[in-house]
Simulated assay, not measured.
Amino acid sequence: MREVRWASEEGEGIEHLAFDARAEGFFVESAVVGQRYGKGYGLYYRVHCDPSWRVNYAFLKVAGGGEVELHGDGEGHWRDGQGQTLKAIEGCIDIDIAATPYTNTLPIRRLKLAQGERQPIAVAYIATPDLQVTRVEQAYSCIELNREYRYEGLFRSFAANLKIDDDGLVIDYPTLFTRLPRTP
Protein backbone atom coordinates (compact mmCIF):
# COMPACT_ATOMS: atom_id res chain seq x y z
CA MET A 1 0.00 0.00 0.00
CA ARG A 2 1.14 3.51 -0.70
CA GLU A 3 -0.19 6.92 0.21
CA VAL A 4 -0.19 10.11 -1.84
CA ARG A 5 -1.44 13.66 -1.35
CA TRP A 6 -2.62 16.33 -3.74
CA ALA A 7 -3.18 20.03 -3.18
CA SER A 8 -5.90 21.89 -5.02
CA GLU A 9 -4.75 24.69 -7.30
CA GLU A 10 -8.29 26.14 -7.49
CA GLY A 11 -8.43 27.23 -3.86
CA GLU A 12 -8.03 25.72 -0.46
CA GLY A 13 -8.00 21.96 -0.52
CA ILE A 14 -6.01 18.81 0.06
CA GLU A 15 -6.51 15.10 -0.51
CA HIS A 16 -4.93 12.14 1.24
CA LEU A 17 -5.29 8.84 -0.66
CA ALA A 18 -4.31 5.29 0.28
CA PHE A 19 -3.73 3.14 -2.84
CA ASP A 20 -3.50 -0.65 -2.65
CA ALA A 21 -2.75 -2.86 -5.68
CA ARG A 22 -3.65 -6.51 -5.06
CA ALA A 23 -4.03 -9.60 -7.24
CA GLU A 24 -7.83 -9.19 -7.10
CA GLY A 25 -7.73 -5.53 -8.17
CA PHE A 26 -7.10 -1.97 -7.04
CA PHE A 27 -8.47 -0.40 -3.88
CA VAL A 28 -8.40 3.21 -2.73
CA GLU A 29 -9.64 5.03 0.31
CA SER A 30 -9.40 8.79 0.48
CA ALA A 31 -10.33 11.94 2.35
CA VAL A 32 -10.66 15.30 0.59
CA VAL A 33 -11.06 18.66 2.26
CA GLY A 34 -11.96 21.17 -0.40
CA GLN A 35 -13.87 24.16 -1.58
CA ARG A 36 -16.21 24.45 -4.54
CA TYR A 37 -18.41 27.33 -5.59
CA GLY A 38 -17.27 29.24 -2.49
CA LYS A 39 -18.40 26.53 -0.07
CA GLY A 40 -16.11 24.27 1.93
CA TYR A 41 -16.72 20.52 2.20
CA GLY A 42 -15.20 17.29 3.46
CA LEU A 43 -15.47 14.16 1.30
CA TYR A 44 -14.63 10.56 2.12
CA TYR A 45 -14.61 7.97 -0.67
CA ARG A 46 -13.67 4.39 -1.49
CA VAL A 47 -13.26 2.92 -4.98
CA HIS A 48 -12.61 -0.73 -5.90
CA CYS A 49 -11.58 -1.84 -9.39
CA ASP A 50 -11.04 -5.29 -10.84
CA PRO A 51 -7.59 -6.26 -12.23
CA SER A 52 -8.56 -4.63 -15.58
CA TRP A 53 -9.25 -1.28 -13.86
CA ARG A 54 -13.04 -1.54 -14.25
CA VAL A 55 -14.89 0.03 -11.32
CA ASN A 56 -17.03 -2.45 -9.42
CA TYR A 57 -17.69 -0.39 -6.28
CA ALA A 58 -17.67 3.25 -5.24
CA PHE A 59 -18.87 4.86 -2.02
CA LEU A 60 -18.79 8.61 -1.37
CA LYS A 61 -19.89 10.52 1.74
CA VAL A 62 -19.86 14.27 2.32
CA ALA A 63 -19.37 15.24 5.98
CA GLY A 64 -22.71 16.47 7.27
CA GLY A 65 -24.31 15.75 3.90
CA GLY A 66 -25.28 13.09 1.44
CA GLU A 67 -23.76 9.83 0.33
CA VAL A 68 -23.84 7.72 -2.81
CA GLU A 69 -23.03 4.06 -3.37
CA LEU A 70 -22.47 2.57 -6.82
CA HIS A 71 -22.04 -1.07 -7.84
CA GLY A 72 -20.74 -1.75 -11.36
CA ASP A 73 -20.34 -5.03 -13.21
CA GLY A 74 -17.42 -3.83 -15.35
CA GLU A 75 -19.59 -4.01 -18.48
CA GLY A 76 -21.37 -0.67 -18.03
CA HIS A 77 -24.29 -1.77 -15.85
CA TRP A 78 -24.78 0.03 -12.52
CA ARG A 79 -26.91 -0.28 -9.40
CA ASP A 80 -27.17 1.99 -6.39
CA GLY A 81 -26.78 0.93 -2.74
CA GLN A 82 -30.40 -0.30 -2.66
CA GLY A 83 -29.93 -2.45 -5.77
CA GLN A 84 -31.84 -0.12 -8.10
CA THR A 85 -30.65 -0.01 -11.74
CA LEU A 86 -29.07 3.32 -12.74
CA LYS A 87 -30.14 3.75 -16.38
CA ALA A 88 -28.68 7.28 -16.62
CA ILE A 89 -25.12 5.90 -16.52
CA GLU A 90 -25.73 2.72 -18.51
CA GLY A 91 -22.69 1.94 -20.69
CA CYS A 92 -20.20 3.84 -18.51
CA ILE A 93 -17.26 1.76 -17.29
CA ASP A 94 -15.38 4.52 -15.44
CA ILE A 95 -16.36 7.08 -12.82
CA ASP A 96 -15.03 10.63 -12.48
CA ILE A 97 -15.22 12.18 -9.02
CA ALA A 98 -14.94 15.95 -9.52
CA ALA A 99 -12.89 16.51 -6.35
CA THR A 100 -9.93 14.26 -7.15
CA PRO A 101 -7.32 13.56 -9.83
CA TYR A 102 -7.38 9.86 -8.83
CA THR A 103 -10.29 8.91 -11.08
CA ASN A 104 -8.25 9.91 -14.16
CA THR A 105 -6.11 6.87 -13.37
CA LEU A 106 -9.04 4.53 -14.09
CA PRO A 107 -9.47 5.17 -17.85
CA ILE A 108 -5.75 5.82 -18.35
CA ARG A 109 -4.95 2.31 -17.08
CA ARG A 110 -8.07 0.55 -18.39
CA LEU A 111 -7.84 1.83 -21.97
CA LYS A 112 -4.16 0.83 -22.45
CA LEU A 113 -3.75 3.42 -25.20
CA ALA A 114 -0.82 3.23 -27.58
CA GLN A 115 1.31 6.34 -27.94
CA GLY A 116 -0.59 8.83 -30.12
CA GLU A 117 -3.91 7.00 -29.69
CA ARG A 118 -7.07 8.88 -28.59
CA GLN A 119 -10.26 7.32 -27.20
CA PRO A 120 -13.56 9.09 -26.44
CA ILE A 121 -15.53 7.51 -23.56
CA ALA A 122 -18.67 8.06 -21.51
CA VAL A 123 -18.16 8.20 -17.74
CA ALA A 124 -20.32 8.43 -14.64
CA TYR A 125 -19.45 11.93 -13.39
CA ILE A 126 -19.96 12.54 -9.68
CA ALA A 127 -20.27 16.25 -8.85
CA THR A 128 -18.88 17.54 -5.58
CA PRO A 129 -20.18 18.33 -3.01
CA ASP A 130 -23.77 17.52 -4.09
CA LEU A 131 -22.85 13.97 -5.29
CA GLN A 132 -25.14 14.13 -8.33
CA VAL A 133 -24.25 11.33 -10.76
CA THR A 134 -24.57 12.08 -14.48
CA ARG A 135 -23.27 10.68 -17.74
CA VAL A 136 -20.65 12.86 -19.49
CA GLU A 137 -18.39 12.54 -22.53
CA GLN A 138 -14.61 12.64 -22.14
CA ALA A 139 -11.57 11.60 -24.16
CA TYR A 140 -8.07 10.43 -23.29
CA SER A 141 -4.97 10.49 -25.51
CA CYS A 142 -1.56 8.96 -24.87
CA ILE A 143 1.13 11.62 -25.30
CA GLU A 144 4.02 9.58 -23.83
CA LEU A 145 3.35 5.94 -22.92
CA ASN A 146 2.96 5.46 -19.14
CA ARG A 147 4.10 9.05 -18.48
CA GLU A 148 1.76 11.68 -19.98
CA TYR A 149 -1.88 11.64 -21.12
CA ARG A 150 -4.26 14.29 -22.38
CA TYR A 151 -7.64 14.52 -20.70
CA GLU A 152 -10.51 16.21 -22.55
CA GLY A 153 -13.74 17.04 -20.78
CA LEU A 154 -15.82 17.13 -23.95
CA PHE A 155 -18.91 18.04 -21.90
CA ARG A 156 -17.28 21.28 -20.73
CA SER A 157 -14.65 22.13 -23.38
CA PHE A 158 -11.72 21.60 -21.00
CA ALA A 159 -8.41 19.86 -21.68
CA ALA A 160 -5.19 19.25 -19.74
CA ASN A 161 -2.07 17.14 -20.11
CA LEU A 162 -1.60 14.91 -17.06
CA LYS A 163 1.75 13.55 -15.94
CA ILE A 164 1.51 10.20 -14.13
CA ASP A 165 3.74 7.94 -12.05
CA ASP A 166 4.44 4.19 -12.40
CA ASP A 167 1.07 3.31 -10.80
CA GLY A 168 -0.80 5.67 -13.12
CA LEU A 169 -1.47 8.17 -10.33
CA VAL A 170 -1.49 11.80 -11.41
CA ILE A 171 1.60 13.83 -10.50
CA ASP A 172 0.54 17.08 -12.13
CA TYR A 173 -2.89 18.20 -13.36
CA PRO A 174 -2.32 21.79 -14.55
CA THR A 175 -4.67 24.40 -13.01
CA LEU A 176 -6.42 21.82 -10.77
CA PHE A 177 -4.14 19.54 -8.69
CA THR A 178 -0.47 19.18 -7.72
CA ARG A 179 1.08 16.17 -5.98
CA LEU A 180 2.64 16.87 -2.59
CA PRO A 181 5.35 17.41 -1.73
CA ARG A 182 5.77 19.81 -4.63
CA THR A 183 8.97 19.25 -6.59
CA PRO A 184 10.71 22.08 -8.44
Score class of each variant (00 low, 15 high):
Met1Thr: 05
Arg2Ile: 04
Arg2Leu: 07
Glu3Ala: 07
Val4Thr: 06
Arg5Leu: 08
Trp6Ser: 07
Ala7Gln: 15
Ser8His: 09
Glu9Trp: 04
Glu9Phe: 00
Glu9Arg: 08
Glu10Tyr: 00
Gly13Tyr: 13
Ile14Glu: 10
Ile14Ser: 00
Glu15Cys: 09
Leu17Lys: 07
Phe19Asp: 09
Ala21Tyr: 06
Arg22Val: 01
Arg22Ala: 12
Ala23Ile: 03
Phe26His: 14
Phe26Leu: 04
Phe27Gln: 07
Val28Asn: 01
Val28Leu: 12
Glu29Lys: 14
Ser30Tyr: 02
Ala31Val: 15
Val33Asn: 05
Gly34Val: 13
Gln35Val: 14
Gln35Thr: 12
Tyr37Thr: 08
Gly38His: 07
Gly38Glu: 11
Gly40Leu: 06
Gly40Val: 03
Gly40Cys: 07
Gly42Pro: 01
Gly42Leu: 02
Tyr44Glu: 08
Val47Gln: 05
His48Asp: 11
Cys49Lys: 10
Arg54Asn: 15
Val55Arg: 01
Val55Ser: 08
Val55Met: 07
Asn56Lys: 02
Tyr57His: 15
Ala58Gln: 02
Lys61Leu: 09
Lys61Gln: 12
Val62His: 12
Val62Lys: 14
Ala63Asp: 14
Gly64Trp: 13
Gly66Asp: 05
Glu67Met: 03
Glu67Asn: 00
Val68Thr: 14
Glu69Arg: 08
Glu69Ser: 06
Asp73Lys: 01
Asp73Pro: 03
Asp73Trp: 01
Asp73Val: 02
Gly74Asn: 14
Trp78Met: 03
Trp78His: 09
Arg79Glu: 07
Gly81Arg: 03
Gln82Tyr: 04
Gln82Lys: 05
Gln84Ser: 06
Leu86Gly: 00
Ala88Met: 08
Glu90Tyr: 12
Gly91Glu: 12
Asp94Gln: 13
Asp96Asn: 08
Ile97Gly: 05
Ala98Glu: 03
Pro101Lys: 02
Thr103Ile: 07
Leu106Asp: 06
Ile108Arg: 14
Ile108Ala: 08
Arg110Lys: 12
Lys112Thr: 01
Lys112Ser: 04
Leu113Glu: 12
Leu113Thr: 14
Ala114Asn: 13
Ala114Glu: 15
Arg118Trp: 02
Arg118Glu: 15
Pro120Asp: 13
Ala122Tyr: 09
Ile126Met: 12
Thr128Ser: 11
Thr128Pro: 06
Thr128Gln: 05
Pro129Thr: 10
Pro129His: 15
Asp130Trp: 06
Leu131Met: 08
Thr134Val: 14
Glu137Leu: 09
Gln138Thr: 07
Ala139Gly: 13
Ser141Arg: 07
Glu144Gly: 00
Glu148Asp: 02
Tyr149Met: 10
Arg150Glu: 14
Gly153Thr: 03
Leu154Ser: 11
Phe155Glu: 10
Phe155Met: 02
Phe155Ile: 02
Ser157Phe: 03
Phe158Asp: 04
Ala160Gln: 10
Asp165Ala: 11
Asp166Ala: 11
Leu169Val: 00
Leu176Asn: 12
Phe177Ile: 12
Thr178Arg: 15
Arg179Asp: 06
Arg179Leu: 15
Leu180Tyr: 05
Thr183His: 01
Pro184Phe: 10
